[in-house]
Design a protein around this nucleic acid. Sequence first.
DNA 1: ACTTTTGCTTACCAACTGGTAAGCTGTCAA
DNA 2: TTGACAGCTTACCAGTTGGTAAGCAAAAGT
Lengths: 199, 199
Amino acid sequence: METAIDTRQKFIEAALRLFADKGFYGASMDQIAGELDMTKQALIHHFGTKEKLYRAVLAQISERLLKQVNNQQADSGASGKNAFADAIQRLFEHTLTYADDTQLLMRELLDNKRRAAQAEVWYLRPFLEELRRLLMQTPAWAQADEAQAAAQVYNLLGAINYFAVSTTTLEQMYSARHVAALRAEFPQRLHRLAQTPPD
Amino acid sequence: METAIDTRQKFIEAALRLFADKGFYGASMDQIAGELDMTKQALIHHFGTKEKLYRAVLAQISERLLKQVNNQQADSGASGKNAFADAIQRLFEHTLTYADDTQLLMRELLDNKRRAAQAEVWYLRPFLEELRRLLMQTPAWAQADEAQAAAQVYNLLGAINYFAVSTTTLEQMYSARHVAALRAEFPQRLHRLAQTPPD
DNA sequence: ACTTTTGCTTACCAACTGGTAAGCTGTCAA
DNA sequence: TTGACAGCTTACCAGTTGGTAAGCAAAAGT
């Protein structure tokens, strides 16, 4: 017998892949369960409903992103001042490593427009708020408006995520070599964007 | 009897709304047809399959976006040099007016990752290529790599679209007044971003 | 006046959706 | 050895999915 925790985790990973790829409605319980060669009732046994499974996936992504943002490295030097720029760079790295996280994060931002009204808790909020907090610790943004800082965070996320998601398309339109070069240059570009002061 | 062309157009508009809101799989033929108080068979009669309906919607969006980008205003002064910056500003305006276009454009960029392999024609490509062309007409980008220019276009699109899509969420987290202020400032922010030179 | 075409509807379908209920099997504690 | 329980499966369900086939009434062509 497999331990419940292992199976749960494997289900969450399979669900993440399929939700990222096809969206909430596009991925069926049957398909997700099939990834582990199990029946969908096993999946329902562990999570209750599809909605709850989706939330479990989202919770894990949010936790992973938050960890990435908060994980201040020892060599980061002065915390506070550079903490935001470092967090953004780590987020970019994370985005390349965990492509599915990015894909699902973007889908969730889109769907939240509709969900926002009825959702009790929005899992991505702590992650976004933490980024905004870090930004407002930098001297340039200390006096800025909260919403303004949040907008800057969204802008940077947009740049990072669009780059990550578009690589497949760019590789098709140009070449894998070109895109690899862009990837190498992107941290510098991102650094410049992150330095943009408030209006 | 309604003329076929009118009905087709109304169907496309209804489909755009629902596809933007819930995605391809989330919106059903029955719902879309219901928006016009018709049966789904009327919809199938006009478009054949759901896939073809979706493509018709995408084609119209692409056409509208391309028109917006190419529509050089008389007061634009020197074409060529400012054409790109103007196009980006018009795109931002368009994004606010036609929110559903933006929503579906983002969904399509996400889905294209999977579609790219099998798709014969990608409807958004002419639009993206035209933007890249305009960017490369500016002095700063004339010598740049094509893929690099495309990446810059994606960056700007990311900033614009993320702002547009996040307004609902931002309004919930902060206030409508704050977000309105951000909207007013955004063109300047966008102008600065558009001036970013290549690496 | 007639036929043809256009723009739909009703009737129907197999496949699939998420979910319930009940049972079966290996593991582990008493 | 027995009982409880965890981790599944089979059986089943009503509702929905995209799609086919056939028909029907109004308009248009001749």
